[in-house]
């Protein structure tokens, strides 16, 4: 035993450093090195002048976004949608799917169900938007046809902004919850089965077992999902918000996010601006990650990132 303690501190640390080294070097070369280019967020980047030769404009690139008439609306949409995507899609629904899947004993059934759950993940939004149209088309769409059978008037789905928060969250859940549930499912797989046996002996019912054994096993993964996702809360893909509503301008009030705002306004690649937005997203993400990590550390120390 004492021989272990005698190893000098550095030698004991060395294996960890060696294992971490490949990734450290890689990140240095491919992630840290290009960061100098973020400086174009503060410049009026002109290709011909290059990164260092372009004129310094300070915060002007940030102004375009913040001074815009629609900034509050866009920020609200971006943040709320991302929160919904994290907590509803990736956590709530994904956990329900994972817990349900965990109860399935038949391997064949599990294969079929899991593969089906993944299918939506591979459909591109272009295709999803077309299929959605089949249901929501104001004149011939299935939903309106059914409504008319019941004597109700059809709804102009693509002209009414108020329905779209639900539609978008639903589409996002449909597409990604299955995939997200696999990560949670893998956490469930790591549970020691003797825990369940002990609970059985104590006479615990199904629900109690789920609540006291399965759910706690999910908590670490959930914390990580929260921290990971909050970091990118300001960024959102453009397809879900542009393609799926079929670019209907009536829906802009509830479907406009930072990415679509950029796309609609600046047609060409304005690198300074996108760099500024990226920087802004990074700063907000950093604040959120540190805050959520701090909260989690108070509540459940071993699940915090650091």
């Amino acid at each position: 035993m004492s021989s272990l303690k005698k190893k000098s501190g550095f030698l004991r640390q060395l294996p960890y450093w060696l294992l971490a080294l490949p990734a450290i070097i890689y990140l240095l070369m491919f992630n840290y090195a290009p960061m100098f280019g973020a400086i174009i967020a503060f410049k009026d980047y002109k290709v011909r002048d290059g990164i260092f030769g372009s004129e310094w404009v300070g915060l002007r690139n940030f102004k375009y976004f913040f001074s815009s008439v629609d900034a509050p609306r866009i920020l609200r949409n971006t943040v709320l949608y991302n929160l919904a995507f994290i907590f509803i899609t990736k956590i709530l629904v994904a956990a329900i799917f994972a817990l349900m899947m965990y109860e399935i004993n038949s391997k064949l059934a599990a294969k079929v169900y899991q593969t089906s759950m993944l299918i939506p993940h591979f459909m591109s939004y272009v295709v999803i938007s077309a299929v959605l149209m089949i249901f929501l088309n104001p004149t011939s769409g299935m939903f309106n046809v059914i409504r008319q059978q019941f004597g109700l008037e059809g709804i102009m789905w693509y002209s009414e902004p108020k329905y779209w928060p639900f539609i978008i969250v639903f589409v996002n859940t449909w597409k990604d919850a299955g995939f997200a549930s696999l990560y949670l499912y893998s956490s469930l797989l790591a549970i020691d089965s003797s825990l369940f046996e002990a609970a059985d002996l104590d006479g615990a019912g199904k629900l109690r077992k789920i609540w006291h054994i399965s759910v706690p096993a999910l908590i670490p993964m959930i914390c990580i999902i929260i921290i990971n996702s909050l970091g990118s809360i300001m960024s959102s893909g453009i397809d879900l918000f542009l393609t799926v509503p079929l670019e209907s301008t009536a829906l802009i009030p509830t479907t406009d996010v930072i990415a679509t705002y950029t796309y609609r306004g600046l047609k060409s690649s304005n690198y300074s601006y996108t760099s500024a937005v990226g920087l802004f997203q990074g700063v907000v993400g950093l604040i959120l990650v540190l805050t959520s990590n701090g909260i989690i550390r108070k509540v459940n120390p071993e699940n915090a990132m650091f």
Partner: peptide, 13 residues
């Protein structure tokens, strides 16, 4: 270009 982009955004909507 930024001002035009703003206008573009509004007229687009």
């Amino acid at each position: 270009s930024f001002e035009l982009a703003q206008l573009s955004q509004v007229t687009g909507e």
